[in-house]
Design a protein around this nucleic acid. Structure first.
Length: 279
DNA sequence: TTGTGTTTTATTGCCTCC
DNA sequence: GGAGGCAATAAAACACAA
């Protein structure tokens, strides 16, 4: 802001203005007092209700005599019509009072407008205009605040988003790294057999062999190098043994441990399992 | 003193509501 | 159709740097 007004004109105007009645209620003003009446603020209208569109006409005919406006201004008033029609700024006191009133209620009912106008020595229209302009300023400020708020919110969201992106990339790299390590490992111990074999059997028996396989490999859901068909085939070949090695479940007598010659392909240490088997 | 930017006061035109 | 609100705008008043 380069310019900006600090009401320095007050020194000029206040000479002509009586002290404001600070005890007044900005919202409901006693009609008797006219504390802020001052010639500088007096803007009379030739007709309170103007023509249709030009609702208001500004005239300074309200300066009735020399006593009301001061000698200098009276002279100017008489000598220079154009200067008479220049705008008048409201006094500091008037503005302060209007501000207080605006804080209480930023809309202006007709009755309140009349009261304020009387109290401040202004035309009701001036009060209405002041409130209108004040609402416009308030709206502008509000928009600025909203913008700043949204901007802050956006920055925050963007920072979060960026963090999530970084985290995602990190996790992705980790997954790639782990996948690579898995692929470097030696192939798991599998019983690869032809699924077309006439001795193709059910999966219940074959599940007994799971512990002989690298299940982390066989069941890795993210083993994306392998298509679904290939994966299914792999599962069959890996997990399902033909009955040439594993007899069907219904053929097995679990009432006693199997003979040592028939360990279903298990190592000798698996005998411990059978030793605990009992019905 | 003057040029320039900002703020305030006021007008205009359009719109909505009653 | 009048009253009043709002957006856009004009113009005066003001601040301030050069």
């Amino acid at each position: 802001m380069v310019g900006g007004r600090v009401f320095s004109h007050a020194s000029t105007f206040s000479i002509l203005l009586p002290k404001p009645n600070t005890t007044l209620d900005p919202l409901f003003l006693p009609a008797s007092s006219s504390s802020f009446l001052g010639p500088r603020s007096m803007v009379s209208f030739a007709d309170a209700r103007g023509e249709k569109r030009g609702r208001w006409t500004t005239s300074f005919d309200g300066f009735d005599d020399e006593d009301e406006m001061g000698e200098e201004e009276y002279n100017n008033n008489n000598n220079n019509i154009e200067q008479r029609e220049k705008k008048r700024r409201l006094s500091v006191e008037q503005v302060e009072f209007l501000e207080k009133s605006f804080e209480v209620e930023n809309k202006l009912e007709p009755e309140r407008k009349i009261q304020l106008a009387k109290e401040l020595g202004l035309q009701p229209r001036q009060v209405a205009i002041w409130f209108q302009n004040r609402r416009a300023r308030w709206k502008t400020k509000q928009l600025e605040k909203d913008y700043e708020s949204l901007e802050a919110s956006y920055s925050n969201l963007k920072a979060n988003y960026d963090n999530l992106l970084k985290e995602k990339d990190k996790l992705k790299a980790e997954v790639a790294n782990l996948t690579e390590k898995l692929q470097e490992q030696p192939p798991p111990h599998k019983y690869i057999l032809d699924s077309e074999s006439p001795h193709y059997t059910d999966g219940v028996q074959s599940s007994l062999l799971l512990e002989h396989c690298d299940s982390s490999y066989a069941f890795d859901p993210d083993h994306s190098d392998v298509s679904q068909d290939e994966e299914d085939d792999l599962m069959r070949k890996t997990l399902i043994l033909p009955s040439i090695i594993l007899p069907k479940l219904e053929d097995v007598d679990y009432s006693h441990p199997p003979e040592s010659s028939c360990h279903f392909g298990f190592a000798e240490e698996d005998d411990a399992f059978w030793s605990t088997w009992s019905y």
